[in-house]
Design a protein around this nucleic acid. Structure first.
Lengths: 109, 109
DNA sequence: AAGACCTATCGGAAAAATACGATGCATTTA
DNA sequence: TAAATGCATCGTATTTTTCCGATAGGTCTT
């Protein structure tokens, strides 16, 4: 994960509709949800949500799989992992003392 | 860290200038850097960078302290920690099997 | 006290993001 | 084959973001 990739992922998640959709998909791992289900959950127009979904897909946070005449969307946990690793490296670059308390709290989940 | 706070933090980091400034400040913990040093590093106008810095400050990612006639900026590691915890909870909500490999990689830093 | 320095804020122009309806393509159903 | 379903894309209007120069308020120096 380089800086550009991280920036794209951050921008993709920095929108209420997209963050909520991504969280919903994470909760529905590994089965996923159809695009239509996500549209319904968003409360937005189908076309508008499609644009948001494209942003998540372009960022690599969501992958889609054709299933009949609908698409099943799934969260890419590895992409989230990559983003968190990128953020963590910011504070741990040769300074474990900054990162240790962070990891300690993360371990609780 | 609630959803709104996380969204604000994500949006604040989702810009090249702001992400770079934040990373620079993390690297310079705990001494910090003056606003002027950050302006020079950004290559932008003083006023333009000041706006970016305000976004980071509003998101709670950066705190400033008056020091003579300049301001020393410092990264708020706890805010970063909070954001990462928020993201991690997305994938660990009652499903440790998703989060374990993530934590395993984080532990390496 | 006057001038230099550091930073925030205002006003405005240019660029990007957001939202919608309409349309088109592929797939399933009838 | 014809109609209906599921989704992406296009065109476009509105809003938001981004950037700059100019200005103003403190703080230090002289």
């Amino acid at each position: 994960m380089n800086t550009d990739t991280a920036l794209t992922a951050l921008a993709a998640l920095a929108h209420p509709t997209r963050l909520e959709a991504f969280r919903l998909l994470v909760q529905h791992e590994p089965e996923g949800l159809s695009t239509g289900q996500l549209v319904d959950a968003s409360g937005l127009t189908q076309s508008t949500f499609s644009t948001h979904l494209a942003v998540l897909a372009k960022a690599g946070l969501v992958k889609s799989e054709k299933r009949g005449r609908q698409f099943i969307q799934r969260a890419e946990i590895d992409a989230l992992k990559g983003l968190m690793l990128f953020l963590a490296k910011d504070c741990c670059q040769g300074r474990a003392e900054l990162c240790e308390p962070l990891l300690a709290e993360l371990a609780c989940c």
